[in-house]
């Protein structure tokens, strides 16, 4: 399995580059690949296209990469930490926590900043962290997180937070328009400002989780086993949960709720190897590529109409989720741990 890791990463990098390029070509204004290359290289007669590329498409593609990578790596971390291959920031309510935090920030004032950082992702992170800890607490049945327990707690926490978002929005009606615009989500609001806002969180979260990937491997064998192997489980787990919250916040505060990328991408990458030293970078690349492709598909399917990226990921991810749930249940039926589902 080790031998397949390098080539897979390389292939994913190539796929990402191709999809980025294809996405740059796609949109309301048709551009041929040649025109895009010329616009990038700054050839004569390409000024109009260069504007579109630099001001509209490039930040959008960059943001799609950040959002996709953040969600996928966040999902990989949560699956590992919960020892549960169906965990995902969207399904278990962490994204809802982040969006509740973000809505609160918007209602307070979207322009406030803490130490030069926009408040939005900070609030989103706080919300995500609170949701993770809550779900973790709720899902523990007999000391171990079960798929059922996790999904049910996720549903409960999500719907509670959705109601809370509606309530907050309703009570503070003056900012209802901004909240509504933000809740629409998607990548249509993409700008270099958003990219700059989200990128540090994404980078920090991925770096942190990559640094702890070996310990995360041990944790997937059980927390006690990890402790027996000399891992400081409390510290590592805490840091990883923070990283997952950071990544979810980065994605949610810049693009709203986008589902299933966080679950499907790491799950598929794990079929190559469950080693997180491979899985974290692979999920980042594959998450970025798949989000860029879904966004391009949304723009390209019926221009000038745009289908939001979240709808495309849900249309593809929903059925895949059901398929994977069946597979996990089937696999569990064959071992003594089957009782947990």
């Amino acid at each position: 399995m080790r031998g397949r890791q390098g080539p897979t990463l390389l292939a994913l990098a190539v796929v990402l580059q191709v999809s980025v390029f294809a996405s740059l070509c796609t949109g309301a204004v048709r551009m041929t690949p040649g025109e895009v290359v010329r616009a990038i290289l700054g050839g004569p007669g390409a000024v109009r296209h260069a504007d579109i590329l630099v001001a509209v498409r490039a930040p959008r593609v960059a943001l799609a990469c950040i959002v996709g990578a953040s969600l996928a790596v966040s999902g990989a971390i949560l699956q590992g930490v919960f020892m549960n291959p169906l965990a995902d920031p969207y399904v278990i309510g962490v994204s809802s926590g982040a969006s509740f935090g973000a809505v609160v920030a918007i209602i307070l004032n979207p322009r406030i900043a803490v130490g030069g950082l926009s408040a939005l992702p900070l609030f989103a992170m706080a919300g995500a962290l609170a949701a993770i800890l809550l779900v973790q607490r709720l899902s523990l049945i007999g000391g171990r997180s079960t798929v059922t327990g996790l999904l049910l707690s996720g549903v409960a926490v999500s719907s509670f937070l959705s109601a809370a978002i509606s309530a907050v929005t309703y009570v503070f009606g003056t900012r209802i328009h901004q909240v509504w615009l933000w809740l629409m989500g998607g990548l249509s609001q993409a700008s270099w400002d958003l990219v700059i806002m989200a990128a540090p969180y994404c980078a920090a979260g991925i770096a942190c989780s990559f640094a702890l990937s070996r310990e995360l491997n041990a944790i997937t064998l059980g927390e006690e086993t990890a402790a027996h192997l000399g891992v400081n489980v409390g510290l590592v787990r805490g840091a990883l949960v923070w990283a997952a919250a950071l990544l979810t916040a980065s994605a949610v505060s810049s693009a709203g709720l986008i589902g299933f990328v966080g679950m499907v991408v790491p799950h598929v990458c794990r079929m190559v190897s469950p080693d997180h030293r491979f899985l974290i970078p692979a999920a980042a690349l594959a998450g970025a590529a798949s989000t860029v492709i879904c966004d391009a598909a949304g723009r390209g399917v019926a221009p000038p109409l745009e289908v939001p990226v979240g709808i495309i990921t849900a249309l593809i991810g929903g059925p895949v989720f059901v398929y994977l749930l069946g597979r996990v249940r089937g696999a569990r039926a064959g071992n003594p741990g089957g009782a947990v589902l």
């Binding site: 171990r144 491997n217 064998l221 059980g222 192997l229 003594p336």
Partner: peptide, 30 residues
């Protein structure tokens, strides 16, 4: 501690498909 004392616990039946060699290599972690 883990370099001097090792524990074989009750198998929690992991869902993550590491190869046998990968699992044993985790013993080198400490």
């Amino acid at each position: 501690v883990a370099r001097r004392l090792a524990v074989v616990g009750q198998d929690p039946a992991t869902e993550f498909g590491f190869s046998v060699l990968e699992v044993v290599l985790m013993g080198r972690l400490p």
